[in-house]
């Protein structure tokens, strides 16, 4: 447990004498934030753990009847579950990957812009402030087979299928909507990193006769790798949780093509009211997101960020 702590001595731990008083003060500072947070999260978490071992009855007030390992057993034998996880991993990798690549490309382009940089950046940022529900509904509006603008455009270029109707295209469409909304965030964070790359570094590279591509590859990208990891972490935290876009566009269809685990969880809880099983799926999801987040945090730590 303490190994990660020992990896690197916190930079600011210097005066031993002040330490005992500090703990008291910092502790008191944290309490008003941590206590409500704990109240809002620990109790529900424990309830979910208990629920995962119970039959959850709703009528006339919730009751939990001990059900042993029934829900967990079902989770590990559910023939469909594997597919949902696989699809989720695919969705996750694809959206995050595209957002990272496009975000970095956009950031590099904006970075090199002389005039109108602020305006362009402001315009590019707009999607990240749009409510996901609105993104989904707007997506439906634009791809409506009868009057959607994008349907019409695709027809002009010879595609007359229906975007949300086919398994492949529906998956692509929900990925595209997510990418539309969140690429700006990655671009924004990357740009912050780029603006902080010391010009001396690039000048040194230029003196060494490095080409543009080499400068980018060997100087610029490595020096913003931390920032990219932070971007990945921030985005990953939400990507696993949010499903609003899929919920309002395809509802998981067609043929389950867009049914990722969060959608499946929501459905289990609030359409089938199988809260015992939903608790199991929820815990598994939490576990998966913690593993992913840990991974990113570790990578950040290894880079020397003591946070």
């Amino acid at each position: 447990m303490s190994t990660s702590e020992d990896v690197r001595e916190p930079v600011r731990r210097r005066r031993k004498g002040a330490a005992p008083r500090r703990v008291g003060f910092t502790g008191r500072m944290m309490l008003p934030g941590i206590v409500p947070l704990a109240a809002l999260t620990v109790l529900p978490f424990l309830t979910i753990v208990v629920m995962s071992f119970s039959d959850v009855r709703l009528l006339g007030g919730m009751r939990l009847d001990f059900a042993g390992l029934k829900n967990w057993g079902r989770f590990f034998t559910d023939p469909e579950m594997g597919w949902f996880w696989l699809r989720t991993a695919g969705y996750f990798a694809l959206t995050l990957g595209l957002e990272m690549v496009l975000g970095v490309v956009l950031a590099l382009c904006v970075w090199r812009l002389v005039r109108g940089r602020n305006l362009v950046l402001s315009l590019l940022l707009l999607p990240m402030f749009v409510a996901p529900v609105i993104v989904g509904l707007l997506g439906r509006f634009l791809t409506d087979p009868t009057f959607g603008l994008y349907t019409w455009l695709l027809e002009r270029v010879g595609y007359d299928g229906d975007l949300l109707g086919g398994t492949f295209t529906a998956f692509a469409a929900v990925v595209a909507m997510d990418v539309w909304e969140w690429t700006p965030l990655i671009a924004l964070i990357t740009l912050a990193g780029l603006s902080a790359v010391p010009p001396t570094l690039r000048e040194a590279a230029a003196l060494d006769g490095a080409g543009r591509w080499q400068t980018l590859r060997h100087i610029v990208l490595p020096s913003i790798s931390n920032v990219l990891l932070v971007a990945l972490l921030i985005r990953a935290m939400d990507a696993i949780r949010y499903f609003d876009i899929i919920w309002v566009t395809t509802n998981g269809g067609p043929a389950n093509a867009t049914k990722i685990v969060p959608v499946r969880l929501y459905e289990t809880a609030f359409r089938f009211f199988d809260f015992g099983y939903a608790a199991v799926v929820g815990l598994a999801m939490l576990f998966a997101s913690i593993v992913v987040a840990r991974l990113f945090v570790r990578m950040l730590d290894r880079k020397g960020l003591a946070r």
């Binding site: 947070l37 999260t41 935290m237 949780r241 969880l265 929501y266 289990t268 999801m285 939490l286 913690i290």
Partner: peptide, 15 residues
């Protein structure tokens, strides 16, 4: 603290 933000919505909502 970070991990509390990752709690799956549908599961925590009932409690």
């Amino acid at each position: 603290i970070i991990s509390t933000r990752m709690a799956p919505i549908a599961a925590v909502v009932l409690p």
